[in-house]
Amino acid sequence: MTNLIRHRLFWPIAVLVVLLASNLVFSDNFFTITLQDGHLYGSLIDVLRRSAPLVLVALGMTLVIATGGIDLSVGSVMAISGALACLLIGDLSNPDSTTKVLLVVGAAIVLCLVFGLWNGFLVAVLGIQPIIATLILMVAGRGVAQLITGGQILNVHSSPYRVIGAGYFLSVPVSFLIAAAAVALTVALTRRTALGLLLESVGGSPTASRLAGIRARRITIMVYVFAAAFAGVAGLIYSSDVSSADSNAAGNLIELNAILAVVLGGTALTGGRFSIAGSVLGAVIITTLDITAVSVGVPVETTLLFKAVVVIILCLAQSATFRAKVFGRFAAKRTVTA
């Protein structure tokens, strides 16, 4: 039992279970999954579908945070990728051509890679503090997105494009499949290779890592590129889901949710050890929280407050110091009586 509680994923899983269970109380059919027109429907499917962008962004954020950095620009990169994709699709003679849409998607992701390189360059080569370095793109990126869309909301009508965010493959939401693939890719990239170990080493002690012969600079640049690429994909999912590019709404405040997801998942902001499964759980928890707020009937104006309270409780539950203070007292009393 103690081993179970000590497991780093115990508390995130517990919270997720509690959240889902509380939904059951308030809405009877929360766990009902039905098949309509060959698509799976239901609140749980909704959770999976709507978690996708946050999961993607949180994955990149996890790796960046593992190196001891942080990436505030992911929301803006989302906006840029959606904006470029919608602009290019709008210019297509045949927006329903799958090949052309794939090319457009590729172009948007390449642009994001360039922005990731920029972040990595600022942090690893120029040595600017990550929070400042990525703040530049966080602010400037929205401007770039607005430049691309000409300051307007670009609407597109392209059935292949719409598949990314709103489509289904074998009854399963495509956005969920993309997120799942991204998780698998990240796990493979970090745990099947030595990248994870080197990341944790750089995050744990940059000086010692350099003296152990690790090329920290390359690795650092790589994680920012990675984060931007995943943010770009998240941007495509978002913009495809709403069939438009909104430079202000796309990825708004997602960097904070992503950081929260990473922290909830048990990765420390100081860098070092990271948990991909934890971050994914964190992202799902945050999305579930949003959906729960609606299903439980929390008034719209207090949703954010509701979210904050749950997050505080979760953070306290995860803090060993806090647990020791609360439960340690009981334990001490018990030994005294015994």
Partner: peptide, 9 residues
């Protein structure tokens, strides 16, 4: 401590 081991590994 600072230039050798990585404590959390």
């Amino acid at each position: 401590r600072t230039e050798g081991i990585i404590g959390e590994l």
